[in-house]
Amino acid sequence: MNLATRNVRMALFGATLPMLLLAVYMALVYAPSVSVGFAAPNAQRIFYFHVAAAWVSYLAFFITAGCSVVYLKTRSMAFDTVASSSAEIGLVFCTTAIITGAIWARAEWGVFWRWEDMKLFLTLVLWLVYMSYISVRGMVAARETRGRISSVFGILGVLCIPLSFSANRIWAQFHPTVIATSQGSLQPAMLAALMVAVVSLSLFYFCVLMIRVDIENFHHAVEELKEKLGDEADE
């Protein structure tokens, strides 16, 4: 790793923790409670990290799709590594969004899940698509075949994102639409808290992505060296 890369990493890691702390402060203290229209005004503060986690999962899946396209064109394993790493992290964020959403739903609606709500259903479909992506990678041993098959999943999966994102606008069922609707938009303090949460989780995503790519590169280097050393290294 050269000095410039190391400095960028240190700056990113250094900026992420204060931003995360600021995001928690803004979500829990700075942003006002919303009692109008919500049965659970305190649980409503889950929204800042729930929405941020969902956004970052979309970002991660778009990066997976982009890198998958480049991989299929160039067959450069570096892009496959970034694509798979980003998919795994995106899945973690998507899981976070689903769990926090379910907790909020229990507080607000009295149930954890509503199968009839298309936003929830399509988000679950998105989660299942990327779960399949990870499963496929675990099942195929040959590196290039694995890269090709999972790239197709990575590209097709991203098609679920516009549907998942706009489901509450199209079907207008139970899931609230809080940003730029015809009924108005968020209060400035709430919007600021949401933006800080999105930025801080995005920074966290890029930190984790760098570590995850390192792990993948180390793993391949270890496998290559083991092959070079033969069976002796496996003992």
Binding site: I46, F49, H50, W104
Partner: peptide, 14 residues
């Protein structure tokens, strides 16, 4: 209290 409990649980999980 229940309302706050959901908030604590969510942030703890995150």
């Amino acid at each position: 209290m229940n309302d706050m409990m959901y908030l604590y649980v969510a942030y703890t999980i995150i």
